[in-house]
Design a protein around this nucleic acid. Structure first.
Lengths: 142, 142
DNA sequence: ATTATCACTTGTCTTTCACAAGTGGCTATT
DNA sequence: AATAGCCACTTGTGAAAGACAAGTGATAAT
């Protein structure tokens, strides 16, 4: 859980969003799922920058409780769990993209990935759709 | 400061953004400035939902250090300090608006402010421009 | 000089964080 | 059937950050 009391329950949409995923790691995990296609505990550990195992386990639970991700058994390997974004989670793509645009504009260190930033501005909807398509892949069927 | 080690320095724009304002309070303060026009320490204390004084002081310092806000003396009351958004801070408007849209779509409790959410979708650029105009008000001149 | 406001600062206690190590369930191998 | 190994956590520990209450120094009006 990000904050201490967690829900401020003010009715403010900004506050609600922050109480749901406004911590240091939740959006990093969602980025890994959305942009890198990560789906397993091990993939998150490798991809996410030095996230502690207990923090990862805690965030995955919290994101599932919030309805942003779901857990399911991997049909190809029964001892493996697959985490997937729900539509609610996929809808966070625009938030991540706006954050990326902001960093691209104001952080000199982020300049490297300029072609990606250009695509956000020129083909935003296409990008979001590509994320959605991959996230939905083999959903409900495998 | 939001996180412990703060800067993860991975070059990832999402990580950079989270390291800069990805905590429970920074975006609430920026929301108050951008959407409610708050400019003074006292206004933040009243408006922000129960933010502790030391946390507020800390975040204001951190946001100033990040170049997102500036401090200046109020010309009408010399013992009062005015906090203002810089262009870098104003550029966070789209992030806040996307978060608001997400909450509006997925939080039943946020439904109340539907007309505002409609305006985000129908007149996003106008809304951002209005925020910018107010944030710039009397800047450099008073 | 007194009083009040503002913008913090300090102190205390609670919660969260990161890192390391341990646990139970499942599977493949022998 | 027994063993070994991987996976997905869970637990333990010390450090850091959090909330809340109270105090401080600078300024300004009275």
């Amino acid at each position: 859980m990000p904050g201490p009391n967690k829900l401020r329950n003010t009715g403010c949409p900004v506050t609600f969003a922050l109480d749901t995923f406004g911590d240091r790691w939740s959006l990093v995990i969602i980025r890994d799922m959305l942009m890198k296609g990560c789906r397993t505990y091990g993939e998150f550990l490798e991809s996410s920058e030095r996230i502690a195992t207990n923090v990862l386990a805690d965030r995955l639970q919290a994101l599932e409780a919030s309805g942003i991700i779901t857990k399911s058994q991997d049909p190809e390997n029964r001892r493996r769990v697959l985490y997937r974004l729900t539509p609610k989670g996929i809808d966070l793509a625009p938030v991540l993209l706006e954050m990326a645009l902001w960093s691209g504009k104001h952080d000199p260190n982020t300049a490297a990935q300029k072609d990606f930033l250009d695509r956000i501005e020129n083909d935003r909807d296409g990008l979001v759709e590509a994320f959605r398509a991959r996230a939905m892949e083999r959903d409900q069927t495998g």
